[in-house]
């Protein structure tokens, strides 16, 4: 059984692979990937996660809607959520934080930045 169950919700396979690569450096981590908000929500309802990384601009359901639905879900009320955004998208970032996201990382993404944020929120730093 994994020590940390992390969900990555991102429509770009490149980004998913990059985030997954960085997070796999945490010992005992298990990564689950979802390609959009609806896919992510399905996975959230099926199992408990210790952390969620989500993009904002995604097809079908965007990251902002996903954050608000996750915060309404009893099992994931307090789960750390990290938003993937661009530096210029300040409005989206503010909305995500207001909806309950814990932190954000900006593109282009550096693997060590992802790792730092994850360790901090999982209290491993």
């Amino acid at each position: 059984m994994a020590d940390y169950n992390i969900l990555i919700v991102e429509d770009s396979p490149t980004m998913r692979q990059l985030i997954s690569f960085a997070l796999k450096r945490i010992r005992g981590v298990r990564i689950v990937e979802a390609s959009d908000g609806v896919d992510g929500l399905k996975k959230i309802s099926a199992e408990k996660f210790d952390m969620i990384f989500t993009d904002i601009n995604m097809p079908v359901m965007d990251g902002l809607k996903l954050i608000s639905l996750v915060r309404d879900e009893p099992n994931h009320k307090g789960v750390p959520i990290v938003v993937i955004t661009t530096e210029g998208a300040q409005e989206d970032r503010q909305r995500a934080l207001a909806l309950g996201a814990n932190d954000y990382i900006t593109k282009p993404i550096q693997p060590n930045k992802i790792l730092d944020v994850a360790k901090q929120l999982l209290k491993l730093a």
Partner: peptide, 27 residues
């Protein structure tokens, strides 16, 4: 990751999409 993604498909549109993603997200 860039190399892996570039050769992960033989669909022309997907290849273009992957190049775009690399330029946006990695560069």
């Amino acid at each position: 990751i860039a190399s892996y993604q570039l050769h992960s498909t033989l669909d022309f549109k997907e290849v273009l999409q992957i190049i775009m993603e690399i330029v946006i997200n990695l560069i």
